[in-house]
Computed example of a mutant assay.
Amino acid sequence: MAGLAESGSNPDVDLLYDINGLAKDAPRWLDRAVAFAGTYGLLVAMVLLVAACWWSVRRRGGEDTASSLAALVWTPLAAGIAVLVNVPIRGFVERPSPFRDHQGLDVLASGRTDFSFVSDHATLTMAMGVGLFVAHRKFGLVGIGLALAEGFCRVYMGVHYPTDVVGGFALGTAVVLLLSPPAMMLLTPVLKAVEGSARGVRLVRAPGVRGAGRDAVVPGARTGAAEAEETDLAA
């Protein structure tokens, strides 16, 4: 299967040349910026987005806090599993990087010796984007947008075919959604247990944020009625 997309007469290769051709006409500073974003920047941005989502969910509170945070814990775990699943896929397909089979590409990343299908970067970012979407719709849409940008960058850099990116998107999405039900069954009780502990509650809820329902309080905190009762007893 190493001959997949080796001919330049198919849409996959044509689109590769079209997108990578933008790099030839762009200023060098822009190429360096895209190369940095496609290699490190967007991955870091995705991690920061997950952290921001955790902070937002903590401050919001509510009945679904534990399940939302469980989905956020599942997000990086799913991304790691997806990359591990990709290891045998790459070994089976054995598709060389496009710059090894096609001349005239403006390659913005050097030192690549591994196979091309599917893209680890696309797999990681889309898995995290979809995982975020399961936890929080607005943050998830931003995460999916970052994943799409990552895929574009990898083709722009000349290190992946468009189908490498699409395959990574499909793999990341599949791992997150297919394994999400058992993962949530395991992780949600853990987060609820943390939420119910005096020490762990601050990891799950911001100080002063109440839990499920009007009567829920932070463990260890005293209600106004309890304080009034203590005052009467003291008097």
Rank of each mutant, 00 (worst) to 15 (best):
V107Y: 03
G104K: 02
R100G: 00
A78L: 05
V87F: 11
T75W: 06
A78P: 06
A79T: 09
Q103D: 15
P76L: 07
V93S: 02
I81N: 09
F92Q: 07
V73L: 15
P88R: 05
V83F: 09
P88Y: 06
D106R: 14
T75G: 08
V83L: 15
I89W: 07
A79Y: 10
S97E: 09
W74Y: 14
I89L: 14
G104V: 03
V83R: 13
L84V: 15
G91F: 10
G80F: 10
T75Q: 07
F92S: 12
P88V: 05
T75Y: 08
S97G: 12
I81E: 08
N86E: 11
W74Q: 08
E94H: 12
P76T: 07
E94I: 02
L84A: 15
P96M: 02
G91W: 09
G104C: 00
F99N: 02
A79L: 08
R100Q: 11
V83W: 08
P98G: 04
P96S: 04
V83Q: 14
G80A: 09
L72R: 05
P76Q: 06
D101L: 13
I81V: 15
D106Y: 13
I89Y: 06
P88W: 05
G80T: 08
A71E: 05
L72A: 05
A71P: 03
V107S: 03
R95N: 01
S97T: 14
P96F: 00
F92E: 05
V107K: 03
R95Y: 01
R90V: 04
I81H: 10
V93C: 01
V107R: 06
R90D: 00
P88T: 05
F99W: 04
R90H: 01
D101R: 13
F99S: 00
R100W: 11
G80W: 09
G91V: 03
F92L: 15
L72F: 09
A82E: 08
L72T: 04
G80C: 08
N86T: 08
V85P: 04
L77Q: 09
Q103V: 13
A71N: 03
P98Q: 06
P96K: 00
N86Q: 11
P76Y: 07
H102L: 03
W74M: 10
Q103R: 13
E94M: 08
R100L: 14
D106I: 03
G80M: 07
I89S: 06
P96N: 03
H102I: 03
V85M: 11
F99P: 02
T75A: 14
G104F: 00
N86H: 05
R100S: 04
I89F: 08
I81S: 09
L84K: 14
L72V: 05
V87K: 12
A78S: 14
F99Y: 12
S97V: 15
W74L: 13
N86A: 14
P88C: 06
L72Y: 07
R100V: 12
R95S: 01
A78R: 06
G80R: 09
F99G: 02
R95D: 03
A82R: 10
V87G: 04
R100F: 12
F92P: 01
P98A: 05
V87A: 11
V83I: 15
R90F: 00
A79K: 11
V107Q: 01
W74E: 10
F92Y: 13
A79Q: 09
R90L: 07
P88S: 04
L84F: 14
A82S: 15
P76M: 07
V87N: 11
V73Y: 05
T75R: 07
G80H: 09
A82V: 10
Q103I: 06
H102V: 03
L72D: 04
V87L: 14
